[in-house]
Nucleic acid binder design. Structure first.
Lengths: 213, 213
DNA sequence: GTTGTAGTGCACTCTTGAGTGCAGAAGACG
DNA sequence: CGTCTTCTGCACTCAAGAGTGCACTACAAC
């Protein structure tokens, strides 16, 4: 306890810097090798930091894993939030739904989301709380906000959505279910056009099933 | 080379027995702990076999993993085959589709399939060939046979299926996408009634979108 | 500048776990 | 029966990798 004020942010800048570079390197290593397969010496080397510093800051490998994943989860959550802008606000249902579909698919399948999912699934037995946490913060939020948008459409009579939560699931998995599942097992990501095409096709099917007309 | 005939099945029964009990124990351990996390001494203990025997039979941990998973994949493939009986044979489309939905969901979500998927996903970086192989042999087959059935319905004018492969994906993921995804992150399996209910709901949506009428 | 805290390098300990060697017991097979 | 193979138990080697101790340097804050 040496800081001038009481805040936790008044840290020695050296610590902040170390923390940041370590977490970056560690995240990459854990994503690539899993928890057991990752190796602290390598993380230290890549972060250009002594192994001792890692232990001074994090205390143990498990803590390092948890904090690194914590950052990754926060990022995933931010992604989810920004994805969930408005749905159900205009009159052009079809356009809105198609747009949401392509954005959803591109976000989930285009970035680092799949790697994070692979890691969490692989470690679900060892770190069930992290897997749970991810699910609540990322896919859970997306589903909830999709459901909100669908509910709005329903209330305005533009779609017939008796159960918005269920419909949100149908939407999400029509749009990206198959490519996402595939991607979890594949080493390289799916082609963007392929993903976009299926997203649109899924959106069409969703509309056919849920349009009021 | 001591066997009387030339076949590979004329093995010393001791070897066959060892192999079997080892693979059983190993599969369980790998499913629970992943490749790196599994430990050969424990596998030997659980199989009630000396560690030396494991190495006499399999030579190395990686080989043990591959052969154990090979059996598991064969089982998964058998499951897939028996699942894919006939679809598109009667006139009662709705009943057939609903039935296929509940059977599909129950098979994939009720048994050991989810654990196998977790393992393969977690090891996809280390054993990409196994993940690939699984995908081709299990989900791939199911998709193909679903597509066949849907094509039959289309040809008979009972459903309108312009792209059977795509429609098969839509069907599968409407029926069990959300629970399957959820299950990959959860430690305990979903409730059977829950699964069945969603399967039927997904089937209804599929019919609404793809019925010719 | 002085003082305190953080980071470095490196040698070190300890544990775990893969894989081996061997001598003897137990089972297969003629 | 005798012979050959496999299985066992156990002690062993070897490598990797987590985590520590310490003397020293470098930077931060006043």
């Amino acid at each position: 306890m040496s800081s001038t004020k009481g805040g936790a942010e008044g840290l020695d800048p050296r610590v902040a810097r170390s923390r940041a570079v370590i977490v970056t390197a560690a995240t990459e290593h854990f994503l690539r090798n899993g928890y057991v397969g990752a190796n602290v010496d390598e993380i230290a080397a890549e972060a250009r930091v002594s192994k001792r510093t890692i232990y001074n800051v994090f205390g143990a490998k498990e803590q390092l894993f948890r904090e690194s994943l914590g950052e990754a989860l926060a990022t995933a959550e931010r992604f989810s939030r920004q994805l969930s802008v408005e749905l159900g606000t205009t009159d052009d249902v079809a356009a809105e739904v198609r747009d949401a579909a392509t954005r959803l698919a591109a976000t989930v399948l285009g970035g680092p989301v799949v790697r994070l999912r692979r890691l969490l699934i692989g470690e679900a037995e060892r770190f069930p709380d992290l897997a749970e946490d991810y699910y609540a913060r990322a896919p859970g939020r997306v589903m909830a906000s999709l459901a909100d948008g669908l509910r709005r459409f329903h209330e305005r009579g533009l779609l017939r959505i008796p159960d918005p939560d269920l419909a949100a699931e149908h939407f999400a998995f029509l749009v990206m279910g198959a490519p996402l599942d595939r991607a979890l097992f594949a080493t390289e990501p799916p082609a963007a056009e392929e993903v976009a095409a299926r997203a649109v096709a899924g959106a069409e099917v969703f509309l056919r099933a849920y349009l009021s007309a």
